[in-house]
């Protein structure tokens, strides 16, 4: 089923001296199995929007429908929503607390009231899916490297078997290799488990290769919502709001300006290489 965001606005600090309108009339429809990149500058409201999707924040106006049910309705089971819409926070390794990685990953399923064996099965499964090294699952999470901690924390959310997985900047602070590994693994989850994935990032470069659709947020409003190709066509406007298209977009535009007959709507480096070869071999 799907997640529908219906005209939500969110104001925080209402009764302090400086209220901030973090979201302004945002509407989104998120169908099953889609991989969506949520892009925006710092403070554009991306994280706030994501926290609305699993009911951690409540919109000041507007509503959210999950599988056809209004999540703000009285008596709606928010705990259930949170298990179905998994949210991996920014720097999720800061939420690790248990003595072993395994116990930490078990925390989510345990909260769902599952039996011990079910919890452990899910934890193994989740750790395997994120590619966590098997010989480390009974060590303390505080002895791991940054990338391993990140994987353990993502597994902690995956173990709840969510239908929708939201990741807030999952690659922040990782080296390029770690970044590519995590993103590839997330893509695999979408393909193999038919999971809906929302990936929050401030970098087009990161998401261009992986996503089916890009939503650009700017100052709490949806600025663009389309396929990567269409979004990158607006690269000049993106620059005006402090974002940029992937480097290949610029290279292809420059090549086209220089007289080479190439298409400018490629999104990945390999596509760009093919396109240049094609243009040159003619």
């Amino acid at each position: 089923m799907s997640l529908i965001v219906d005209h939500i606005s969110y104001i925080y600090g209402k009764d302090t001296g400086t209220p901030i309108e973090a979201l302004k009339d945002v509407s989104l429809s998120i169908p099953d199995g889609q991989f969506i990149g949520i892009i925006g500058h710092t403070g554009s409201g991306k994280s706030t929007l994501m926290q609305h999707l699993n009911g951690l924040e409540k919109a000041s106006s507007g509503t959210i429908y999950f599988n056809g049910e209004d999540v703000y309705e009285k008596g709606y089971n928010l705990k259930n929503l949170r298990s179905k819409v998994g949210l991996v926070f920014q720097y999720p390794e800061h939420q690790l607390f248990a003595e072993t990685v395994f116990a930490d990953v078990c925390y989510g399923p345990k909260n769902l009231g599952l039996s011990k064996s079910d919890c452990e099965l899910r934890a193994y499964d989740a750790l395997r899916k994120v590619g966590f090294p098997e010989d480390l699952i009974f060590t303390s999470p505080f002895e791991l490297s940054g990338g391993q901690k990140r994987r353990a924390a993502i597994a902690g959310v995956l173990a709840m078997k969510p239908e929708v997985l939201i990741l807030d900047e999952p690659t922040a602070g990782l080296d390029p290799k770690g970044r590519d590994e995590i993103l590839t693994q997330i893509k695999k989850l979408q393909k193999e488990e038919n999971m809906t994935i929302l990936l929050v990032s401030h970098s087009m470069e990161d998401v261009a290769e992986y996503v089916d659709r890009i939503v650009v947020l700017n100052e709490g409003k949806i600025f663009l919502d389309n396929t990567p190709k269409e979004v990158f066509r607006h690269y000049k406007e993106l620059e005006e709001i402090g974002l940029s298209a992937p480097q290949v977009t610029y290279i292809m535009h420059d090549l086209a300006d220089a007289g080479l007959n190439v298409r400018c709507d490629v999104t990945t480096v390999s596509e760009a290489a093919d396109e240049i070869v094609r243009a040159l071999s003619r």
């Binding site: 699993n54 951690l56 949170r82 998994g86 949210l87 939420q95 925390y107 769902l112 902690g156 709840m160």
Partner: peptide
């Protein structure tokens, strides 16, 4: 933030 992260884990 931590409270929210753990709430998100049920």
């Amino acid at each position: 933030k931590i409270m929210k992260a753990q709430l998100a884990r049920g």
